[in-house]
């Protein structure tokens, strides 16, 4: 989240990935979700650092659960989206929607969804 309270674009992706997973996720699911949706390689370090930052901002909270055999018995850190996080996503969507209003990409000679 920038100084103006807006989400950074990667922060927004991470937060959305948690939201898509029913408001609860951990590092691996978030990483896979973003990679699957954007098609770009995302590192666990970047995801983790962002989750950590979002928690520090109060947009997420986290708790440790017991691990299982698939991960060598290591604990999972589950992140849950907080009220403030939901608000931040809503603000982000509204801001974007406001900006999109009246923009017609076809007029600008761009690629329009559905056209080939």
């Amino acid at each position: 989240m920038g100084r103006d309270g807006l989400l950074g674009s990667f922060e927004e992706l991470v937060l959305l990935a948690v939201a898509r997973a029913g408001g609860e996720g951990y590092g691996m699911t978030v990483r896979r979700e973003i990679e699957a949706r954007t098609g770009r390689e995302v590192t666990i370090g970047a995801v983790y650092a962002t989750l950590d930052r979002l928690e520090a901002k109060g947009l997420l909270s986290s708790h440790l659960t017991d691990g299982d055999a698939g991960r060598g018995g290591r604990a999972r850190r589950i992140f849950r989206i907080e009220r403030a996080g939901v608000d931040a996503l809503a603000t982000a969507r509204e801001t974007r929607a406001g900006l999109w209003e009246g923009v017609d990409l076809a007029d600008l000679g761009g690629r329009v969804e559905g056209s080939r």
Binding site: M28, R31, G67, R71, A75, R76, R77
Partner: peptide, 20 residues
Amino acid sequence: LLPPGDAAAVVGDLDEEYQR
């Protein structure tokens, strides 16, 4: 590289994805 408290969770995430 990780802060001690969080190392297990992150390494676990990566290991889990690696194996699964």
